[in-house]
């Protein structure tokens, strides 16, 4: 078996909301074309950590990063102030907790990222939209009504539409922030199957508070608590033989 290559290297990452330190000295390697799950009790900083990868924190004042996240292979530090957050977001896409389609047609929702990049060639757009919708396992359901408003879709379909939107720009990393927390079990299992499928092509980081979900979709899991990484390793190991007591207590449901 070929050794996994590293896609992103998190080094000594600290993060502050004003004076409040939300992430403490995080060190972690994200592996290419693997699913990495971030788990932990609410408020442990997992979403905060995830949002560092596409610089979402830059949208609000008084937020501060320390340390670095090195993106391979070109070795740029994506949280450095010298790097434009917009460039980072164009390379690293995100799917949110609640489906958030735009008030546009299904087609335009998927094409959004390309439009933002100034691509307006109809043929190119149509190709990419189809490919992305197929990638998000939504094509067969919507191919006859691409010009209908995205709001007509069900919640699960909307979330897959958001995945298609994120895929359309060929991201290097795809971030999922509790993508199924607003969905019913059937829609959830569809999204989970999709994530497993997607990792063949893209590196995935997923935040979830559903441990079964982490176990089902990820190869690597990081357990976070109070802004720190307590334990990080192969998912099977974290869930069957955790080396930290805290991890074990969380996994066995003694707190959380």
């Amino acid at each position: 078996m070929v050794r996994d290559s590293i896609k992103a290297e998190v080094k000594n990452l600290n993060f502050f909301y004003g004076n409040v330190q939300a992430l403490k000295n995080i060190n972690l390697d994200i592996l290419e074309k693997r699913v990495t799950a971030l788990i932990g009790p609410s408020g442990c900083g997992k979403t905060t950590f995830l949002r560092c990868f596409n610089r979402m924190h830059d949208l609000y004042p008084h937020n501060r990063y320390e340390g670095s996240i090195i993106l391979k292979p070109d070795d740029i530090d994506i949280i450095s102030p010298n790097i434009d957050p917009i460039e980072v977001r164009m390379r690293i896409s995100m799917v949110f907790q609640k489906p958030n389609p735009f008030p546009k047609t299904i087609f335009e929702n998927v094409a959004y990222g390309l439009r933002v990049r100034g691509i307006s060639n109809k043929k190119v757009l149509a190709e990419v939209v189809e490919k992305s919708l197929r990638g998000a396992a939504l094509w067969d359901e919507v191919k006859d009504r691409l010009d209908k408003p995205a709001f007509d879709l069900s919640g699960g379909q909307q979330q897959r539409l958001c995945i298609a939107r994120a895929l359309a720009t060929n991201p290097e990393i795809l971030l999922f922030d509790e993508p199924t927390s607003a969905l019913d079990p059937i829609a959830t299992s569809k999204i989970e199957e999709l994530i497993v499928e997607l990792k063949n092509n893209v590196t995935i980081i997923i935040v979830t508070h559903n441990m079964q979900q982490a176990a089902r979709v990820s190869e690597y899991t990081a357990f976070m608590y109070l802004g720190e990484i307590i334990e990080y390793g192969k998912t099977e190991k974290i869930f069957t033989a955790p080396s930290e007591k805290l991890t074990e207590e969380y996994i066995t449901g003694r707190f959380g």
Partner: peptide, 11 residues
């Protein structure tokens, strides 16, 4: 190409 586009968008 992308960097140029970003520059233009930001402009």
């Amino acid at each position: 190409e992308l960097k140029k586009r970003i520059k233009y968008n930001k402009f």
